[in-house]
């Protein structure tokens, strides 16, 4: 099946300057497993648009690097 690349406004934003290399807290606490670590930068980012805007990633982040926005469709 051919692949199309679409642009999405993703709910979880990770401040790449604040995010700690090697830390996986937000990736592990996300119930939907929507976050991932970029292997090049070793920092977290939202890899899938699957968000319940429940906020453990933001609350449990030790570096205050994560912000959960309300998903655009609901905002």
């Amino acid at each position: 099946m051919p692949q199309a690349i679409q642009h999405f406004d993703l709910p979880v934003v990770v401040d790449q300057d604040k995010c700690i290399e090697g830390c996986r807290v937000c990736v592990e606490v996300c119930p939907l497993d929507a976050l991932a670590i970029n292997p090049d930068t070793r920092k977290a980012y939202m890899a899938r648009d699957e968000c319940w805007y429940c906020t453990p990633c933001q609350v449990d982040c030790p570096a205050n690097a994560v912000t959960v926005k309300i998903p655009y469709l609901l905002r």
């Binding site: 592990e28 606490v29 996300c30 119930p31 939907l32 497993d33 319940w52 429940c54 906020t55 453990p56 609350v59 449990d60």
Partner: peptide, 12 residues
């Protein structure tokens, strides 16, 4: 299927 730290209906 996730991680028990924050999984289930009462994540927060």
């Amino acid at each position: 299927k996730a991680n028990i730290r924050r999984s289930g209906a009462i994540t927060m």
